Simulated assay, not measured.
Amino acid sequence: MSDMEMKVSIPLDDDGYLRRECPLCLKQFKILLTKEEKGDFVNKAINSYMVKDEKIESGDDNDLEHTCPYCGQKAHSDGWWTQEQAEFFRTIAENMAADIVNETLVKAIKGMSNDLFKVDANEMEKKEVWMHPEINDMVVFNLDCCERKIKIEDEWNGTVYCFFCGFPHEK
């Protein structure tokens, strides 16, 4: 089977920050991606829904963990999508699968009809792919340990953990 390629983008705020969500405490924050991270970030997300029970060999961050800026708990790098982002990528993956089924299996089944019998197959329906635009909320917090920036909730007054290395910062 040939590779499928699709360009997908997810909304960033006006400063270029991407919304993330802790898989444990469910609090949201934003990270500023480097140019290197932007390249295959979305493709890895889609692959995580297309390839199950296999280790994706597209990079060396398969076992990379990040830290929640709020609760300080660690989780694997592919677990930080917001619920809306996860549904967005799931819908894209389902639509890609529907295209494959419709173009191969359904065509083949319909082609089996002859004078003796008629075979009919319905095509899989595709869902609309949509995500809300990103709003400009949260405040910038400098992570001096990694020389990076994140955005956190305005009212957060507790310790802020570095998303990248886990170092605790006092606000």
Rank of each mutant, 00 (worst) to 15 (best):
T104I: 05
K127R: 13
V101G: 03
C146Y: 10
E94V: 06
I109W: 04
T67N: 12
T34A: 13
T34C: 12
T159G: 07
F163E: 09
T104P: 03
A93C: 07
I10D: 06
L143G: 03
Y161C: 03
L116G: 07
L24G: 02
L105Q: 05
T67Q: 07
R148M: 15
S77I: 14
N122Q: 10
I150V: 15
M131S: 11
C165S: 09
N157V: 10
F89G: 03
T91Y: 03
I135Y: 00
Q83L: 11
P133Y: 01
C146A: 11
D78W: 15
Q85N: 11
V101K: 04
E57S: 12
G79I: 00
C145T: 07
M112E: 11
K126Y: 01
E65R: 15
V139H: 04
L18Y: 12
I10S: 07
F141I: 06
V42Q: 06
D40E: 14
F89W: 01
F41K: 09
G79W: 09
T67C: 15
N157I: 07
D154T: 12
N95Q: 04
T159W: 05
D99H: 05
A121E: 03
L64W: 12
D61G: 11
L26M: 11
F164N: 06
F167M: 09
C25L: 10
R19K: 14
N142Y: 10
